[in-house]
């Protein structure tokens, strides 16, 4: 059996008295692409933020490559790249300056070639000197992916990266995400777009009411039946609540 790169055991998260995650157990292997589905408020973003060490678990443990996020958060952050619906970019810096800044944060030596390669990969090299505030939403998300890949992380966390994109930009993003996956890179992505998510996934999980209600290989899901399956599990959880 392949070694689990990410291990989540008994994860609970409270915000005040509000319980957002209720006992999540999940293990994700190297090279897998896991698509995390769920309605708004299901806890998808919270789960990703805990994995990214941006938030602490109230209870339970998260390990990345055998290292607890509590024990060595700095070390774990080196393994992670993150793209969220917020771009994590500076509008008043150019595309190249944004990547240069993040290259310094990640301690990359002589990052010029890497920055050039990534800007070419996301088709923004010709706009490298332009301020990010002049970019469209689709261009910003492509640049955000370049930023997340700058230090070549083995784990990529994508929190609804297709939010606010027009269909053409979303298709381009899906193509790009397909290109950057692979055997060496583990991807965890949340999305509301079930069909698009399924096209990228090795594995599909549904989070509802803070609980993991489905975790199954993508090959076992009929693309036509993903919506009814999703509605079934989400409604079932709503009735329980």
């Amino acid at each position: 059996m392949p070694e689990a790169l990410i291990q989540i055991r008994g994860l609970h998260k409270y915000f005040g008295r509000h319980r957002v995650l209720r006992g999540i157990d999940l293990s994700i292997e190297t090279g897998q692409t896991l698509i995390l589905l769920g309605p708004n408020g299901a806890g998808k973003t919270t789960l990703l933020r805990i994995l990214a060490t941006l938030s602490r678990p109230t209870q339970g443990e998260v390990q990345v490559a055998g290292v607890s996020t509590k024990a060595n958060p700095e070390g774990i952050r080196q393994y992670l790249g993150m793209v969220s619906h917020a771009p994590l970019l500076y509008g008043d810096l150019s595309a190249a300056e944004n990547l240069e800044f993040y290259a310094r944060l990640y301690g990359l030596h002589q990052p010029e070639a890497r920055i050039k390669h990534l800007l070419q990969q996301v088709d923004l090299y010709h706009r490298r000197k332009d301020m990010v505030r002049t970019f469209s939403r689709g261009m910003i998300q492509r640049l955000a992916i370049a930023r997340a890949l700058l230090h070549n992380p083995p784990i990529l966390l994508l929190d609804e990266p297709d939010t606010g994109l027009d269909p053409q930009a979303a298709e381009m993003l899906t193509g790009l995400l397909g290109d950057i996956g692979g055997r060496e890179r583990t991807i965890i992505m949340t999305t509301h777009h079930l069909e698009r998510g399924l096209a990228l996934a090795d594995r599909v999980a549904i989070l509802a009411g803070g609980k993991l209600v489905l975790d199954t290989p993508a090959a076992e899901i009929d693309p036509q039946g993903v919506r009814p399956l999703y509605d079934h599990f989400v409604n079932q959880e709503r009735r329980k609540a």
Binding site: L54, G75, Q78, L80, M82, A86, L88, Y90, G91, Y102
Partner: peptide, 14 residues
């Protein structure tokens, strides 16, 4: 507000 705070906090450094 411009959503870059998380980017800073993701840096692998103290």
């Amino acid at each position: 507000d411009q959503g870059s705070l998380a980017g800073l906090l993701l840096a692998p450094v103290d």
